[in-house]
Design a protein around this nucleic acid. Structure first.
Lengths: 340, 340
DNA sequence: AGCTCGTGTGAAAACGTTTACGTTCCGCGC
DNA sequence: GCGCGGAACGTAAACGTTTTCACACGAGCT
C-alpha cells in the first residue's frame, strides 16, 4: 500500500537502517545524510507503520480504557480527564465501553492484547477472578472505582464514603433530623460506599435507627418514585439525600408536583455535581466529584507503572477527594467546601 | 514476553500454521486437531498479538476518531454513538481529541497511520489543504460537520440550516416579530449554517431587515452578555434564538435577573437539546440534534468505505435531521416535531 | 498399476520496523 | 608501513502473525 521505509532508503541511496536512525535521531549518521533522508521522507510523505514499529519495540504509545456504558456526564468527564493527561504524554487512548456482560468485557480485554501499553479498567464485571482469568499478567493495569481490594492491582477510587458522610453531617448541621437516602443499583460499589457514609454519619450522631434507605437505580425516574415514596411516609423525612444527582432531580420533580417546598419542607441533596445541578430549581446542593481529575490521576499512575515495570513499591490505593457544594436545595449559604 | 503462537504450536505438536488455521477457523484442519489446539491455547492463555496480526493482514479492527475538545454533552454523545456502532461491529475506537492547533492535529493524524482502518474527522483544522497534506490517500475517511465541500471526502452533517430555519419559523408562527440571534464562534461551520437558516426564515417572511445578530462564543457567559445586550435594545426583541443551549441558558439568567418574564415578555430558544435543557426554568424550547445517531451514521458510512474500497459510487453528502422540541420557554404546547 | 484429486499438514515468505553486529574507510600514533 | 580505533553505514535478524506453496498420503477412477 503506502510508502515504506524501504522506499525512502532507495530514494535517498542509503540503507533502511540509516533511514531509521536518521528519522529517530539515534545518531550514527552524518548531519548531511540525515538532512537528505529527512527531506526525502518528507517529500514521499513517509509515515512509519505503527503496527510494525510496535511489533519490534513492544511499545504502542497507547493506553486502553475499559469502561461501562458511556452514558451520562460522568464518563464524558472521565474520558476527558484521561484523554487530556494522555495527550500531554503523547499517548493515545483506545476506548471500549458498554459491555453488557462479563463475556463481552473479557473479549474486549483480550482484544487489547498487543495494542496497548497499559490498561485503565472501570467495569462492574471487573472482579478479581475476572481479572485473573483475562488479564495478561504483564500488562500494567489501574482499576478505577473498583470494589476489588487486592494489592495485586493498582487502584484509584473516589472518596464516596467521605463525601456522603460530609453531606449527611451537613444536613444534620442544618437541623434536619429525618434524612432519607435514595440508593442506586445494589451491585454498585460507589453506592455501597455512599450508603455507608450516610449510615455512619447518622450513627455518629446517635441516629443510627433513623436511617431510611429507599431503592433507586440512578435514573431520574427512580428518583421521582423514591420522592413519592418519601412523601407518603409518616412522619415525613425532612431531607432526602440521593446517591446521585439525576435521582435528586427526579425527586425535586416529585416534590414540586406535590407542592412541597424545597428546602423549607424537605431539603434535597445529590451526589456528583453534574453540570445540570446548578441549573435546576432550586439549584442542587451536592457532592462534587472531580471526575476529570480522577481520570488524570489514573492515567498518571498508569504511566508510572509502565515506565517502571519493576514495581518494587506498589503504591497504596489512592483516593481522590470530593467537595461539598452548597446550593439552595438544602438551605444554607452557597459555598464549596473541599474535602481531601 | 507473553506466550506466542509458537508456544502453542510446540505444546500441541503441530506447526504454527495449523495453530493459526485452527484458531481462526479457516478449515484445513481435522476437527480433532482443531480441538486439541484450542485446548492448548486456552490452557496457555494464548492471545494473538494484534500488532503482528495487523502487520500482515493490514487490518486493525480499529477506527480512529479525531475530535476537538471533548468538553460538553455534545462530544460525549457523539463518542457514545460512535462507540455503540463500532462495538456492534467488533471494532475498537482510538480517540484523539482537543488539538490546540493544526500542527498538533497533523501529528495526531499521522500517528493514526497503521493503527486504524479508517478515520472519523471532526476538527476545526480539517480544511481541504490540511487533509491533503496529512491524510494518507488510502485511508478511508469520513468528515463530520466539516465545512469542507469536496467530493473527494465523504462527509456527514447535521442539518443546522434546516433546524434553525424551522425554529425561526416556529417563533414567527407564535407571533414573535423581533427575533434576535446569538451567534457562536465565527469560524464554526455549524454556527454559520444556523445563522443562515435564521436569516433565510426571516427573509422568507419578508423580515430580512429585522435580523439582529448578537455575538457569542457558545459559553453560558457569552449568552448572559448577549441577553443583557438584547435587554438594552430599543425596541426590545420579543424573542431570542441562541445558536446553542448553553448560551440560551445564560440568556435566561440575564432575563430572570432583570425580572423580564419568559416567555411572556421575551421568548428564548436554543439549539442542541442538551439534557439540561429540560430542567432549566422555564424548560427550554430547542432544536434537538440526534448526536448519537450522527456518530452511528458516520461510523456506518466509514465501515462501508472500508469494506468496499473501490468506491465506484461515492455517496452523496449525508445530512442527519433535527427535531423541533417545544417546551415552555417560547410558549406554545410541549411537542416534538421531527424534521428530516 | 498408474493417475488424478482432495485433504491435512509443515516450511517458509511476507508484512515494516528497529537494532545488534559487521564492514569499510579514514586518520593517527607508533 | 602497520595496526588501531572510531565513525558512518550496511546486512540481516528479530518481532508474531497469516498465507502461499509444496509435500505426503490415501481414495477413487480408468
Amino acid at each position: 500500500m503506502s510508502v515504506t521505509i524501504k522506499d525512502v532508503a532507495r530514494m535517498a541511496n542509503v540503507s533502511v537502517a540509516s533511514v531509521s536512525r536518521a528519522l529517530n535521531g539515534h545518531g550514527g549518521v552524518t548531519a548531511e545524510t540525515q538532512k537528505r533522508i529527512r527531506e526525502v521522507a518528507a517529500r514521499l510523505r513517509y509515515v512509519p507503520h505503527n503496527a510494525a514499529r510496535s511489533l519490534i519495540t513492544r511499545r504502542t504509545q497507547t493506553i486502553g480504557a475499559l469502561l461501562p456504558d458511556l452514558h451520562g456526564a460522568f464518563f464524558s468527564e472521565l474520558i476527558r480527564g484521561i484523554d487530556l493527561a494522555a495527550r500531554a504524554r503523547g499517548l493515545y487512548m483506545l476506548v471500549s465501553s458498554s459491555h453488557g456482560d462479563a463475556t463481552e468485557a473479557a473479549i474486549a480485554l483480550r482484544a487489547m492484547q498487543g495494542r496497548v501499553d497499559g490498561l485503565l479498567v472501570m467495569s462492574p464485571h471487573a472482579d478479581e477472578v475476572f481479572l485473573d482469568e483475562n488479564l495478561p499478567i504483564v500488562l500494567p493495569t489501574v482499576l478505577i472505582n473498583s470494589h476489588v481490594r487486592s494489592d495485586r492491582h493498582a487502584a484509584l477510587d473516589v472518596d464516596d464514603y467521605g463525601g456522603a458522610r460530609t453531606m449527611t453531617e451537613h444536613l444534620l448541621g442544618l437541623g434536619r433530623k429525618r434524612i432519607a437516602f435514595i440508593a442506586g443499583p445494589e451491585v454498585n460499589h460507589d453506592v455501597q460506599e455512599r450508603c455507608r457514609g450516610y449510615r455512619e454519619a447518622l450513627a455518629a450522631a446517635g441516629l443510627a435507627d433513623r436511617a431510611i434507605v429507599l431503592p433507586g437505580d440512578f435514573t431520574e425516574e427512580s428518583g421521582y418514585h423514591a420522592g413519592k415514596q418519601a412523601l407518603a411516609m409518616v412522619p415525613r423525612p425532612d431531607a432526602i439525600f440521593a446517591a446521585n444527582d439525576m435521582m435528586a432531580i427526579g425527586c425535586l420533580s416529585a416534590l414540586s408536583e406535590a407542592k412541597v417546598r424545597t428546602p423549607e419542607d424537605i431539603a434535597v441533596a445529590g451526589f456528583d455535581d453534574i453540570p445540570m445541578a446548578r441549573y435546576v430549581t432550586p439549584p442542587l446542593t451536592t457532592v462534587r466529584v472531580r471526575i476529570a481529575e480522577l481520570g488524570e490521576a489514573a492515567l498518571e499512575r498508569l504511566v508510572r507503572m509502565i515506565e517502571a515495570p519493576d514495581d518494587a513499591a506498589p503504591e497504596p490505593r489512592t483516593v481522590v477527594g470530593t467537595e461539598l457544594v452548597v446550593r439552595a436545595s438544602c438551605g444554607g449559604n452557597d459555598a464549596v467546601r473541599r474535602r481531601a
